[in-house]
Amino acid sequence: MLIDEILGWIKLNLKDLIQIVLFPGIAFILIFAVAATWFERKYLAHSMLRIGPLHTGRVAGWLQIIADFIKLTGKEVITPRNVNVFLFNLLPVLSVCTSAIAVAFIPFSSDWIIYEGNGISLLLFFAAASLTPYITLMLGWISNNKYSIIGAMRVSYVYISAEIPAFLAAMGVAIMAGSFSLIDIVEAQSRIPFLIPQILGFIVFFIAFLAEVERVPFDIPVAEQEIVAGWRTEYSGINFGVTMMMDYIPLCTWTLLFVTLYLGGYQGPLIFASQTLSNFFWILLKFSLVIVVILLFRSVFPRLRMDQTLRLTWKYLTPAAFLNLIITAIIAYYYPDLFGLIGAS
């Protein structure tokens, strides 16, 4: 019967379903967005000598985020005059979906990955992650607001200028590992993470990925002191909540990529009985540490200006990434034995 067929299909694809729905799929990303919001509020509050959310929920105000979300759903959704209502309401949801796709290519263990990508998962990650700025651009454009348009233009500037150095830096890693597959890249770091041999690429990628995820000091597209809220100015109610969530999903996927490329991904000593569980532990630990480091930037640094960001990315990061790529390529061509020394192929 039909039900039996469905059950049989579920049984066959149980692992894929768990991966897509629970970990590292939808549930993980949503929980991360909530937890990161809570942690950011709490952490920044402490850096400012405040306490932060306190009362809602018994422990450290953790329910406050949920309460805020419920409040947002209860608010009126205002659609501005003369906009395409369908696109205006669709695009926030679409942007969340597209930016979440990229997590499918991140390996959480050698056998725990949603889609292996036929050995080119690094390229597929960049392809998927680059969809988001187009949608953000459209979001700002159709909002029919001056601030939104300025914000949308800034999005395109920042993304294009930051994506090129990030991609070039990642190519250095790919040459070193001899593969575009993220699993192969992680396996190549079994002895020593690429942080050390690829130190120049590491720095370039770190700065460029801060710009990609719109964290301070590169949160130029939503610069609230200058252009109210950038491309999300006109959004209200639950649409606003969704666009806020969109801040955290690229942060999640790009940080995972950063950990995978340079910090050895899921590699680490065996601490649980199961190899898979141990791998989960290590990647999540590295991921959390990087997030903790990044979140405090907001409390330390001012925002850079648009022209300064462009000067930084085009004048310094892109040449540095090229230099890194060329050095890696020369070594890979003439002295392939050097890579063997550190464990890479």
Binding site: Y43, A45, H46, S47, L49, R50, I51, V300
Partner: peptide, 11 residues
């Protein structure tokens, strides 16, 4: 800033 983050709040 990190030192402030781990010190006691003033509020």
């Amino acid at each position: 800033v990190f030192k402030h983050a781990i010190s006691k709040p003033h509020t």
